[in-house]
Amino acid sequence: MKISVIITLKKDVLDPQGKVIHQTLDGMGFDDVNEVRQGKYFEIDTKEIDNDKAKAKVEEMCKKLLANLVIENYKIIDPK
C-alpha cells in the first residue's frame, strides 16, 4: 500500500526559499501570487495491508523522523 505524506512549515516559521520563489514568480509575470510556502512530499510504500494500521504507522514515522514538530506540520493523504 502506498501512503503519501505532505510536510509543511508552520504558519509562523519564516520560509526564505518560499519567499525567493514568490519573488521569482513575480518577476516572471505571475504577479497575482499572495504567498508561496515550500514543503516536502513523501511516498511510502508499506507492506501493511490494513488501512488504519498503515496510517497509524506512518503517523508514528512523521512524529519520530519525517517532520520536526517544532517547525513543521504533517498531513497524511488517505491511501487509494
Partner: peptide, 8 residues
C-alpha cells in the same frame, strides 16, 4: 531547531 540562514 536550526533553520536555513535568513538570507539563504
Amino acid at each position: 531547531v536550526l533553520l536555513r540562514n535568513k538570507y539563504l
